[in-house]
């Protein structure tokens, strides 16, 4: 059963008709026919009448236990009952006009998430990205070998004011300090393998397995920077450890005071 609530209001020589159709049963197709003495001026999209509208009215589906709201204009003078509504067949759920769901909205309008290349994130975040872009596959994988990207003791990852290097707890990133040390270890291993060669065949094999001479030079440069930072970190770590050792707060006394 579909109940009808319709009204017509004259504004500036035009009559605006509103129709509200409420269903308390299954989804049902209806035909809404203009009863006023004049043409229907339907709502338009891009200059064309919207789906369901024609020169004499509207045909569409009132959703199950739901509402269909319509509105149109006409030059005809208003009257008590501006429309006649004819109930037609019950519509299976799949044909329900209100069938668009959130996923369909997303597909139609486009994913609003920032593109992966637009997200300045540590490598761990990139790896953990659950939704890789098909159009941005060549993503930044070069950061581990770049000494400019490792956290320095003067500017550890968490110190920076932007979120560019802040470890993102939300996407399961690992500890940036551990990441950095792992990267250093990898580069040192490369250097050690190159250092250990004694014969030409050994050198050939080592260069092949470490990515060639250019990669070896890069690792050597990166390791030089790593060494400076490691020593600086070690120095700071020792000073912090000394400070910890020098403290002995009287916690039990403080506990009694509070």
């Amino acid at each position: 059963m579909v109940s009808v609530d319709a009204s017509a209001t004259a504004i500036d020589g035009v009559t605006l008709v509103t129709v509200s159709l409420d269903s308390d049963g299954p989804a049902r197709r209806v035909r809404v026919e203009q009863r006023l003495d004049g043409p229907v001026w339907p709502p338009r999209c891009e200059g064309e009448p919207e789906r369901g509208w024609d020169e004499s009215g509207y045909e569409g589906v009132v959703p199950a236990d739901g509402r269909l709201a319509l509105g149109y204009a006409t030059p005809a003078p208003p009257a008590q009952q501006p429309v006649a509504v004819e109930e037609r067949e019950v519509v299976p759920d799949a044909e329900d006009a209100a069938g668009e769901d959130a996923t369909a909205v997303l597909q139609r309008l486009g994913d609003p998430s920032p593109p992966r290349d637009g997200v300045p994130a540590p490598e761990a975040t990139v790896r953990a990205d659950p939704r890789p872009d098909c159009d941005t596959l060549p993503a930044a994988e070069e950061t581990p070998d770049d000494p400019g990207h490792v956290p320095s003791p003067e500017h550890p990852a968490g110190d920076e004011s932007t979120d560019q290097t802040v470890p993102d707890r939300r996407v399961g990133s690992t500890n940036p300090v551990t990441d950095w040390l792992d990267g250093v270890e990898e580069r040192v291993t490369t250097l050690e393998r190159l250092d250990a060669v004694e014969t030409v065949p050994e050198a050939t094999t080592a260069l092949q397995s470490t990515g060639g001479l250019a990669a070896g030079r890069r690792a050597a440069r990166a390791c030089a920077a790593d060494r400076r930072r490691l020593l600086s970190v070690a120095d700071r770590a020792r000073r912090l450890a000394d400070r910890i050792e020098a403290t002995d707060p009287p916690l039990s006394s403080l506990e009694r005071l509070t």
């Binding site: 609003p112 993102d168 939300r170």
Partner: peptide, 17 residues
């Protein structure tokens, strides 16, 4: 709402509904 682009990317937008 969070303010990081990484956070904006990590979620499922349809879950907003």
């Amino acid at each position: 709402c969070g303010r990081s682009l990484a956070g904006a990317r990590a979620g499922d937008p349809t879950a907003l509904v």
